Simulated scan of single mutants.
Amino acid sequence: MADHDHTARTPLINRAFKIGILLNISFVIIEGGFGLATNALSLLADAGHNLSDVLGLLVSWVAVILSQRERTDRLTYGYKKSSILAALFNAVFLLVAIGGIVVEAIQRLQNPQPVLENDVMIVAAIGIVINGFTAWLFMKDQHKDLNVKGAFIHMAGDAAISVGVVFAALIMKFTNWFWLDPVFSLVIALVILISTWGLLKSATELSLDAVPQSIDLQKVKSFIQTQDTVTSVHDLHIWAMSTTENALTAHVIRTTLDHNNDFIRRLDHELTHNFDLNHTTIQVELGKISDESTDHCI
């Protein structure tokens, strides 16, 4: 049975965004300051990435707030789609940040400079705690909401990156391989790219009203066709209204129109409780089994 209790968790998600934004703004200031003082590009690169995460968290939080606003005569779905746009914005913004990190790292590779390894390790260790805790705040809901998943990926990735920064600084401390700083910055960029690509793909697909990954269209179609008196289904469409709510429309051909209201009510109940669907619109048509050939659009 699908879990559709999104409204009840909104206060918890709002609190997670508030705490995450406050912690990460504080960390950006600390990390950026130490990066400048210690001449560590890996810290500066990670601070820039964390700054983009703060902006991403803000955009995601605003989208959560907007998605709860009432619909209007012009915006009949309200602002639900804003959460999809927020996820898409975060993915694109991260790709831009990657480009900046790569350019700076290549320039620094041509002229490696020493860093204060102890300070770098201390700041990165703080990052592990802050980013790890923030990721934990979003862990439970990231499987249900692509917008929240984007925030989770950023925070979990940052925590992993901070672990790598500690090891890189430790190696530089004993080897004086200062070229490792810009090299690791490139590794950071690669990690961000890998974690962002899936988010970008999913957000783009939902923006194009693709069937959400949590739903198998053919299973939904087969389920409808197995209902009593149903001979076929056509014009079946499933799309995301937001990162947490999905809708379905379908034309269902029955052998009779008897008890039609009861049939629609029951089918709506079954669909929303057996699949990750929140809103269904079903049009019933009278026909025979031969009419299945009209199934021209799914």
Rank of each mutant, 00 (worst) to 15 (best):
N118P: 06
Q283D: 09
P11L: 02
V163G: 07
V211T: 15
G35E: 00
F138Y: 03
S290N: 15
L88C: 04
M139S: 15
D46W: 03
K288N: 15
I298N: 15
T255A: 06
I264A: 04
Y79A: 08
L22W: 12
G99T: 10
V233Y: 06
N50E: 04
H6N: 12
I122W: 11
L55A: 13
V183S: 08
D276A: 14
A87S: 04
F152G: 07
L186Y: 03
A87L: 01
E292V: 12
A8Q: 02
T249G: 14
M241H: 07
I29S: 09
T72G: 04
L51P: 00
Q225F: 08
F133H: 04
S42D: 00
A97F: 05
E270P: 07
N131F: 08
D235M: 14
P182K: 10
V284K: 11
G198M: 05
A2G: 02
V191W: 12
T281W: 13
S42E: 01
D3L: 10
T72K: 07
V28H: 03
L23Y: 02
Y79M: 15
T10V: 14
D262G: 13
R265V: 12
G56W: 02
M172R: 10
I224Y: 03
P114D: 06
D209A: 14
D291Y: 13
I153P: 02
A156W: 12
L193Q: 03
N39F: 00
A168V: 15
I65L: 14
A168W: 04
S52K: 00
P112F: 12
D268N: 15
L271N: 06
T255E: 13
K80Q: 13
T231L: 12
L66M: 14
L206H: 09
L199V: 14
K201Q: 10
V64Y: 13
L36C: 06
L208Q: 07
S290T: 14
L180N: 06
V62R: 13
D291P: 11
N278V: 07
N147A: 05
G287N: 06
Q227I: 00
G56C: 02
P112N: 09
G100Y: 04
